[in-house]
């Protein structure tokens, strides 16, 4: 499985803004099994890049291909199947159902394309220190706890690519490492790729490629 970028430039970029980027306006591909670390300062289009890859936005020139299929041509049903089976994401803004419990937030994703049993949710929550929050409303959790919920949610499905958009911004060092370890274990189990974007280099993410946006 491969995600290929062909001369992708956001429509809203001013002329010359993409110059010097190792991703914008380049031909580049990511394959399953590899870890890619993308470092990007604020305003360089980091979140837009992740949203382009996930198919949430189409306001760019160039092409993004998944196994030679242009994702701009996917319809809503194809996107649904793709997001159930091939690609998972942790949004920078988390996107949780704040009026539902933590467990409901995780189950609604797990049930869609079950990769793990329900018991694995409890095990993961315990590992990341939010087991006691499972029955609580999501809105009552701190941002750091919500970040860990979003991480566990992304791991409930099969995937070839895991997209992470500043996934640790509100976690302490200890929790960052635990979360990263969990994600790398899960990706390895699926022989999947991790594409992580952050403002600065994260040392405990064992990336084969380091790219600057």
């Amino acid at each position: 499985m491969q995600i290929s970028l062909q001369q992708v430039v956001p429509d809203f970029f001013e002329t010359g803004k993409a110059n010097g980027s190792q991703l914008w306006n380049q031909d580049i591909a990511f394959s399953t099994g590899e870890n890619v670390h993308i470092i990007a300062p604020s305003g360089s289009g980091k979140t837009s890049f992740i949203h382009f890859l996930y198919g949430l936005r189409k306001d760019y020139s160039g092409n993004i291909l998944y196994d030679n299929n242009n994702i701009k041509n996917y319809d809503a049903e194809k996107f649904a199947t793709w997001r159930q089976q091939n690609i998972s994401i942790i949004f920078q803004d988390l996107r949780l159902f704040t009026q539902q419990t933590v467990l409901q937030n995780l189950e609604i994703k797990r049930l869609l394309a079950p990769y793990h049993k329900e018991s694995r949710i409890t095990a993961m929550a315990k590992r990341l220190g939010i087991e006691s929050k499972l029955a609580k409303l999501c809105s009552t959790c701190s941002y750091g706890e919500q970040q860990r919920i979003a991480i566990i949610r992304a791991l409930q499905q099969p995937f070839d690519f895991l997209l992470l958009d500043e996934p640790f911004s509100h976690l302490d060092e200890n929790n960052r490492q635990k979360a990263m370890e969990l994600m790398q274990e899960e990706a390895t189990e699926r022989k999947a790729a991790i594409i992580l974007t952050d403002l600065k280099k994260i040392d405990y993410f064992k990336a084969e490629r380091l790219l600057y946006l």
Binding site: A76, E77, F79, A80, T81, R83, Q84, R95, A113, Q157
Partner: peptide, 15 residues
């Protein structure tokens, strides 16, 4: 908002 998020997470519109 909830329906949009369900679609974003991979729920099919026809389902």
């Amino acid at each position: 908002d909830n329906l949009q998020l369900l679609l974003t997470l991979g729920y099919s519109p026809s389902w």
